[in-house]
């Protein structure tokens, strides 16, 4: 699924945190690629490593205790992990921009919106202060801040949550990045505002022709905006395919679990099918597949060795023995256990 036309290509990324209570393998072997102009979704529960993946790309892992121990992050063919801090600073905000989850805390409370926008533009572009200000105004207009002319002088606390996220997006877009990483950009917002912000992302993408990596735990967001999607579990990709294929023909038991736990308005009201158990402790992962202890279909092999990400169809990769011909004939033992619990 990797090819030369990729804008971003992440290969075998391992980001570990070395804490007193052990090594936390937050990202443990992630591969994916993003083409210019497309949207890739990264889905998973809290702690599945999706945000750490994003921060690793930008070189923003808090270190210590975090460290990228292995892998490559190729952006336009250059390995970002080999760049100096100074080179990375000129890429962050300019080539790759990021929008964070909580607009309430991600903007500096004691600086005006103007200051926070203009400083970004001046850092990367050769413009005068006046030109930068004009550009900032233009961007606020673009992301739909009404009365931008006056509002630009306000402080973040004078904006609502949705408006703040628009400001964040305007800042991210200020230097025309070719890649935008959005880390749960709608999670902290009201549902109606969520839809508006997603619309804004789509509109901006079309106008500015940039690629987006959309990190979310919400499959609804994926369905709304993403072309392709990677499902992550315990620091590893579980399934990686096109969005339509994932929804029509999701393969990994974890993906299926996620889909079943979405309430559907069309069906009769039933108890939601939640995935049993808890995400594993990343300091001491099971020897086999890290999802096996929670998996309905787990087999002997799943406890003994960790499956690899394998293509099951063109452009559809799954990391599960169920979809590996060598193992799929084995009998699941969990089903009987779960069955006996029910009776």
């Amino acid at each position: 699924m990797q090819n030369d036309s990729s804008l971003l290509e992440v290969r075998n990324l391992h980001t570990h945190f070395f804490t007193k209570s052990g090594v936390v393998k937050a990202v443990d072997g992630v591969d994916f690629s993003v083409k210019p102009g497309e949207t890739l979704g990264i889905v998973g529960e809290s702690g599945s490593g999706k945000s750490i993946t994003a921060l690793s790309i930008l070189g923003l892992i808090p270190s210590p205790p975090g460290r990228i121990v292995d892998g490559e992050v190729l952006f336009k063919g250059d390995n970002l992990l080999k760049k100096s801090p100074k080179e990375m600073r000129s890429i962050r905000g300019k080539e790759i921009a990021m929008v964070f989850q909580d607009p309430m805390t991600s903007l500096n409370p004691v600086l005006t919106v103007e200051k926070q926008m203009v400083e970004t533009i001046l850092t990367h572009e050769k413009l005068t202060r006046k030109q930068a200000f004009a550009r900032a105004l233009e961007l606020l207009d673009l992301v739909g801040i009404p009365d931008a002319k006056n509002r630009i002088h306000n402080y973040p606390h004078e904006f609502s949550g949705g408006m703040r996220q628009r400001v964040m997006i305007a800042i991210a877009l200020s230097c025309n990045p070719s890649l935008l990483i959005a880390d749960e950009p709608t999670t902290a917002l009201d549902v109606t505002i969520q839809a508006q912000i997603l619309e804004l992302f789509k509109k901006m993408q079309k106008e500015l022709d940039m690629a987006i990596v959309m990190i979310t735990h919400d499959l609804g967001v994926v369905a709304e905006v993403c072309d392709r999607v990677m499902v992550m579990y315990a620091g590893k990709p579980a399934e990686y395919t096109e969005t339509t294929k994932l929804f029509d023909n999701g393969k990994h038991p974890y993906t299926l679990g996620l889909m079943h736990s979405i309430p559907k308005i069309t069906e009769k009201r039933q108890k939601l099918e939640a995935i049993t158990g808890m995400p594993p402790d990343l300091r001491s992962l099971p020897i086999g597949c890290s999802f096996a202890p929670r998996c309905k279909y787990a087999m002997e092999s799943c406890l003994e060795s960790d499956p690899l990400l394998k293509n099951v169809a063109d452009g559809h990769a799954v990391r599960c023995f169920l979809h590996d011909d060598a193992f799929s004939k084995e009998e699941s033992f969990n089903e009987t256990i779960i069955g006996s619990e029910k009776s």
Binding site: R89, A97, M98, F100, S106, L107, H124
Partner: peptide, 16 residues
Amino acid sequence: QDYIRTADAKGLKTRL
């Protein structure tokens, strides 16, 4: 704080 991470993600100079 988050806004320091944001400032970092904007590529600002450390002194700033």
